[in-house]
C-alpha cells in the first residue's frame, strides 16, 4: 500500500515574488512520521529550495515551530497520523514577519528579551571566590516551571494581542522575566519593572489564555503575566505608604 498525504506548504521567496503562495507536495504517509519528517522528505527528495528551521527533532530546541492547520505546533511532535487523510496546511508561525518560506524574523522577540532583563540580577552580588548562591528546594520550586521555556514562539503565534499590537512585550519574554522575579537569589524586580509594568507589558494582556494552551512545555505564560499584574498592583500600593518601600 503506497499511501501518501498532501502538504500545502506556505512558500515565500522574496527574490522571486511579492506575495506568498501555497505549494502542494505529496509525501509518503507513515504512522511514525511527524510534520518535520515530511518537510525533510520534501527538502531531500522533492524540492531542495524549501526553507525552514529545525535542529533537535525532540521538542527541546524550540526551532521547528510552525502553524499546522492553523495551530501553532512544534512540527517535531505533530504526527501525520493525527491529520490523515486530510491535507495538512503548513505555514510560518503567525504574527511574525516572514523572511523566507517557513522562516520567521525573531528580532522583535530577542530585543524584548533584553528589555525585560531576563537574566539573573543578583540581590547581593559577590565574587566567585565566595562560592555559589544557595537556594532551598522550596525556593527552586517557585520558579522552576518558568525555566522550561524553550523560546519556541508558539505562544506569540497564538496571542491575538501580539498580532494586533506588535509593541506588546508578549508571553514568553514576560514569563522569563517572571522566572527571575520569583528567584530568591534575584534582586532585579525594580529594574525589570519599567518594561514589564508598562502599557506594552503586562497591562496589554487581556488574558485570552491561548499562550498557555499551546505551550509545549506547560510553562503557563498567561499565569505568569497575571501574577506579574498582582505584583505590580501590590508594588503600587506599597509605594503609597512610607513603610512600604525599602
Amino acid at each position: 500500500m503506497a499511501d501518501t498525504i498532501s502538504l500545502d506548504v506556505f512558500r515565500y521567496r522574496p527574490d522571486q515574488e511579492d506575495e506568498p503562495q501555497f505549494q502542494r507536495y505529496e509525501v509518503p504517509f507513515r504512522k511514525d512520521w511527524v510534520v518535520l519528517d515530511a518537510l525533510n522528505h520534501i527538502k531531500d527528495e522533492i524540492d531542495g529550495t524549501l526553507s525552514y528551521r529545525w535542529s533537535c527533532r525532540m521538542g527541546v530546541c524550540g526551532s521547528c515551530g510552525m502553524m499546522v492547520n492553523g495551530e501553532p505546533k512544534l512540527t517535531c511532535s505533530a504526527f501525520l497520523k493525527d491529520y490523515y487523510p486530510n491535507p495538512i496546511k503548513v505555514e510560518p508561525l503567525a504574527n511574525f514577519p516572514v523572511l523566507r518560506d517557513l522562516i520567521i524574523n525573531l528580532d522583535d522577540f530577542i530585543q524584548k528579551l533584553g528589555e525585560v532583563k531576563a537574566w539573573l540580577l543578583p540581590k547581593d552580588p559577590k565574587p566567585i571566590s565566595e562560592g555559589e548562591y544557595l537556594q532551598t528546594p522550596a525556593q527552586l520550586a517557585q520558579y522552576k516551571q518558568y525555566t522550561l521555556c524553550i523560546n519556541c514562539m508558539l505562544c506569540y503565534a497564538a496571542c491575538p494581542v501580539y498580532g494586533l499590537e506588535p509593541d506588546f512585550i508578549g508571553p514568553a519574554a514576560i514569563a522569563l522575566a517572571h522566572r527571575y522575579n520569583l528567584d530568591s537569589r534575584d534582586g532585579g524586580f525594580q529594574q525589570r519593572a519599567e518594561a514589564i509594568f508598562s502599557h506594552e507589558g503586562i497591562w496589554e494582556c487581556t488574558f485570552v489564555g491561548e499562550c498557555s494552551r499551546v505551550c509545549p512545555k506547560h510553562v503557563d505564560p498567561a499565569g505568569a503575566i497575571q501574577q506579574e499584574k498582582v505584583a505590580s498592583t501590590l508594588d503600587f500600593y506599597r509605594s503609597l505608604v512610607p513603610w512600604g518601600k525599602k
Binding site: Y12, P14, E19, P20, A94, N95, P97, V98, L99, N105, P160, G163, L164
Partner: peptide
C-alpha cells in the same frame, strides 16, 4: 531585507 507581514 525584504520580509512579508501577514495582516491580521
Amino acid at each position: 531585507g525584504k520580509q512579508y507581514v501577514r495582516p491580521v
